[in-house]
């Protein structure tokens, strides 16, 4: 078979698959700015639905962003030292702990949420606060932070690096903040983006844990799909996209292998 034809065929197939995936997304985004979706684009474009969503669901947006940042703070404080501890003493036990960390990811979010409700549902103040959702989010995202940081820590010669710093008189805080943290910056950054993205988009857990006063963006989305007109749901989706796309793109850019001169 001649090569230009083969190339054209492959390109065609790729574009077809891409279109299959992208068109619904574009349709949905378009629906959010169409005056009346059932009449089509001819009815005109408008930002009315977007403003409406911001009006109706501003609190869910704020809560989602707040939760994502709080979740990030928690996973940084818990996850980075945990990853360091795991990298420092690789043993069968730490392998086991590493595997166990994945459990919240593997178990359906609904099950985790149910477990949280059974265990802590009785504490009313806690149950009805956003902190309850935060706990769920931290549980779910922590493994991602630990894994990202651990991957970087395992790729550097941590032991020698620390011994080098020690020989120069550096105490543990000096070493940790001056040498270890800066050298796993790329892992921390990748983990952070992952955590924020996952927290903003988390639905399973959150749907079980939320109260009418603690609705996050995805829960609000489900709500609007169920009870609002299609254009509003779509405008809401559009806002979600605008929020999450830069994060996804940054994540992609970070995960690209970095070019490094090796000697």
């Amino acid at each position: 078979m001649n090569r230009p034809f083969l190339f054209a065929a492959q390109l065609g197939l790729t574009l077809l698959v891409a279109a299959f995936l992208v068109i619904p997304v574009l349709m949905s985004m378009l629906a959010g700015v169409t005056v009346n979706f059932f009449q089509g684009i001819s009815s005109g474009l408008t930002l009315r639905w977007v403003w409406r969503v911001l009006d109706l669901y501003a609190d869910t947006l704020a809560l989602s962003l707040g939760l994502a940042l709080a979740c990030l703070a928690c996973t940084l404080v818990l996850g980075v030292p945990a990853a360091y501890a795991l990298a420092k003493r690789p043993s069968r036990l730490t392998r086991l702990i590493e595997e166990m960390l994945v459990v919240p990811v593997a178990v359906p979010g609904l099950a985790t949420a149910l477990a949280l409700l059974i265990a802590y549902g009785g504490f009313r103040e806690f149950r009805t606060s956003a902190a309850f959702i935060l706990v769920g989010h931290v549980l779910f995202t922590l493994p991602f932070m630990i894994r990202a940081v651990l991957a970087v820590l395992s790729s550097i010669d941590l032991k020698t690096l620390e011994e080098g710093a020690r020989s120069l008189g550096a105490s543990f805080p000096h070493r940790f903040f001056g040498v270890i943290l800066p050298n796993c910056r790329s892992g921390i950054l990748a983990g952070s983006l992952m955590v924020v993205t996952l927290s903003i988009g988390e639905f399973n857990l959150t749907w079980m844990l939320h109260t009418p006063l603690t609705k996050t963006l995805p829960v609000g989305l489900a709500d609007s799909y169920a009870s609002m007109r299609l254009e509003i749901g779509s405008a809401y989706t559009l806002i979600f996209f605008i929020l999450i796309l830069p994060l996804l793109m940054a994540m992609q850019a970070l995960s690209r292998p970095r070019r490094r001169k090796e000697t």
């Binding site: 550097i156 010669d157 020698t160 690096l161 011994e163 080098g164 710093a165 020989s167 040498v179 800066p182 050298n183 910056r185």
Partner: peptide
């Protein structure tokens, strides 16, 4: 101390 693997700080 001078190490075989240098142990320089890449950051």
């Amino acid at each position: 101390m001078v190490f075989q693997s240098y142990a320089l700080f890449p950051n």
